[in-house]
Design a protein around this nucleic acid. Structure first.
Length: 423
RNA sequence: GGAGAGUUGGCAGAGUGGUCGAAUGCGGUGGUCUUGAAAACCAUUGAUCCUUCGCGGGAUCCAAGGGUUCGAAUCCCUUACUCUCCGCCA
C-alpha cells in the first residue's frame, strides 16, 4: 500500500511509473485524493464537535461539585445535542475512510525506474548467464524418469495418499532434500542471518500484511474451521514478525532466514510445464528476509542477489538472472530479480529464486516503522528472496548430473549428503 | 472439548464513573559529577490523525467492536487472544 501523502505529492510520477506495470492509475489517484480531502474536512468537523462536548463534560463535573445544578442541566442538554452531531459525523467519516482504504488497496506498488516495460516473462531483461550447459549423453532422460529409475521420488504414491503435486521423496531423494536444506541454511548463517522455524499456518492479518490478501486469496490453502491459511512461503510469517513494530535505526539490517514447507493451490495452472517437480502444491524452500533502512534497501537487494548467485555456483548449476518487466512484476514488488537454472534434459530454464525489494509497500500495510535520528517514525523497507526453492534445484541436479553410472552429487553438497552418487 | 482467570505505555505493574494518556519501578535518551566508565543525582521519554511557516492548539487510542452516561481504562454486551486446571494427545 502506498502512503497517502506520497501519492498526493507524486501524482504524476506514480501514474507514469505504474504505466510500466500496465496499470492505469490516473483515475483512481484522483479518486483517492478527493476522498482524502473529504476525510480531512470531515475529521476537522468531528474533532471540533468533540472538543466542544469534552469541554462541556468537564464543566459539568465542576458544576456538580459547586452545587450549580441548573447550569449542569443546561450543559447536559447542549452536550447531548453535540453528541448526536458527532455520531453522524463519525459515520460519515467511517464511510469515507473505508472507501479510501478500498481504493488504496487496489493500487499496486510503484516499480523501480530500472524496471523494463513489458507484458509477460518474454519481456524480462536478461542480465547475465553463467555456468556451462552440460552436454548429456544421448539417452539422457528428464528428472521424473530418473526419479523412478533410482527410486528416489514417488509421484504416484503422492497421488494415492494426497493428490497430484504432493510427491514422496525417499531414500537418497529424501536425503538429498535434507542435505540441500541444511546447505542453504548454513550458507545463510555464514552471511549473518538469524535462523527461524516459523508456523506454517497464518491468520488473515498476516496474509494481508505481506500482500497475499486480498490479492491472491485463491492461491492459498484455507482452513475454514479455524480461519487460518497455509503459508505459500516463509516470507509471510517471517516478515509479519515485524507487523506493528517500531524498530530503532541501529536494528538495521535485520537478516532472517527460515526453512519451511510451502503450500500453493496453483489454481488454474495445469498443463505442459507442470510435470514432475516443475510445479508442486507442497514444496520446500529456504527463504531469506531482510528489513532495511530505506536508503540502503537497493544496496541490500544487490547483496542478496549476489548471495543467491553464489549458491548456484557452488551447486555448479548453469543459471541466468533476469530483471522482471513491469507486466511480470508482482503487485507488491518494486524490483524483482529472478534466477533460473537450466535443466538440461527438459531443455528448459526453471525459476528457482525470486528476490525482491518491496520498499515500504508491505511496511505500510503492516505498520513496520523505525525511529530516525530526529525521533520521527518512518516506514522501513522489506526485502526477501528464495535461497533457494528445492524442487527445481533437485530437477536440474538430477538432469544435469546424470551419467551412465548414476547421478553425481556436486562437491559442495557431499559433506551434507554423505554420498556422492545416486545409483 | 469442559471449567475458571486475565488482556493497561518498550517491559513490569497501579488505577473500579469526573482534570487519567494514565501512579510507581525498570529500561531508553540528554545532562551534572568523573581522566574515562560505573554509581548517584537532575531532566526527559507512547502512537496516529487534523491544524499551524513555526511556537502551539485540537481529536483519537488502556485487546477489538458495539452499548449505557453530560462524562468510561473503570459499568454492560459481543468477539479475539493469553494463562491455569481437567480431558485428549505428539
Amino acid at each position: 500500500m502506498l502512503q497517502i501523502n506520497y501519492i498526493r505529492d507524486n501524482k504524476a510520477t506514480i501514474v507514469k511509473l505504474l504505466a510500466i506495470k500496465n496499470f492505469d492509475a490516473s483515475i483512481i489517484i484522483d479518486e483517492i485524493i478527493n476522498l482524502d480531502d473529504r476525510r480531512k474536512s470531515t475529521q476537522k468537523e468531528l474533532d471540533d464537535s468533540l472538543a466542544k462536548s469534552n469541554k462541556l463534560a468537564k464543566e459539568i463535573g465542576g458544576f456538580y461539585k459547586t452545587g450549580q445544578r441548573d447550569k449542569a442541566e443546561d450543559a447536559k442538554a447542549q452536550s447531548s445535542e453535540l453528541k448526536f452531531i458527532a455520531k453522524e459525523l463519525e459515520q460519515k467519516l467511517d464511510t469515507i475512510v473505508t472507501g479510501l482504504n478500498d481504493k488504496l488497496i487496489e493500487l499496486p506498488n510503484v516499480p523501480h525506474e530500472s524496471v523494463p516495460r513489458g507484458n509477460s516473462d518474454e519481456d524480462n531483461e536478461l542480465l547475465y548467464e553463467e555456468g556451462t550447459i552440460p552436454k548429456l549423453y544421448k539417452d539422457a532422460i528428464p528428472h521424473w524418469e530418473l526419479a523412478s529409475r533410482y527410486g528416489i521420488i514417488d509421484f504416484d504414491l503422492g497421488s494415492k495418499v494426497t493428490g497430484a503435486g504432493f510427491p514422496f521423496y525417499k531414500g537418497k531423494g529424501a536425503r538429498l532434500q535434507r542435505a540441500l536444506i541444511n546447505f542453504f541454511l548454513d550458507e545463510a548463517l555464514d552471511q549473518g542471518y538469524l535462523e527461524y522455524q516459523p508456523p506454517l499456518l497464518i491468520n488473515s492479518d498476516s496474509g494481508y500484511g505481506t500482500g497475499q490478501l486480498p490479492d491472491k486469496e485463491g492461491q492459498m490453502y484455507y482452513i475454514g474451521e479455524d480461519n487460518l491459511y497455509l503459508i505459500p512461503t516463509a516470507e509471510v510469517p517471517i516478515t509479519n514478525i515485524y507487523r506493528n513494530v517500531i524498530l530503532k535505526e541501529s536494528d538495521f539490517p535485520i537478516k532472517n532466514v527460515a526453512y519451511s514447507n510451502c503450500f500453493r493451490r496453483e489454481a488454474g495452472s495445469y498443463g505442459k510445464d507442470v510435470r514432475g517437480l516443475n510445479r508442486l502444491h507442497q514444496f520446500d524452500k529456504v527463504e531469506i528476509v531482510q528489513i532495511q533502512h530505506p536508503n540502503k534497501s537497493y544496496e541490500t537487494l544487490e547483496l542478496m542477489k549476489e548471495q543467491i548467485a553464489s549458491l548456484l555456483r557452488k551447486l555448479e548449476l548453469p543459471f541466468r538472472v533476469v530483471r522482471l518487466c513491469g507486466g511480470d512484476l508482482s503487485f507488491t514488488s518494486a524490483l524483482t530479480y529472478d534466477f533460473e537454472v537450466y535443466s538440461a534434459a527438459q531443455k528448459m530454464w526453471l525459476e528457482v529464486s525470486s528476490v525482491s525489494n518491496f520498499e515500504n509497500f508491505q511496511a505500510n500495510r503492516m505498520k513496520l516503522r523505525f525511529k530516525d535520528k530526529n525521533g520521527k517514525s518512518k516506514l522501513a523497507h522489506t526485502l526477501n528472496g528464495s535461497a533457494l526453492a528445492l524442487p527445481r534445484i533437485v530437477a536440474a541436479l538430477l538432469e544435469n548430473n546424470q551419467t551412465q553410472e548414476g547421478i553425481v552429487i556436486p562437491e559442495a553438497l557431499r559433506s551434507y549428503t554423505k554420498f556422492d552418487l545416486i545409483n
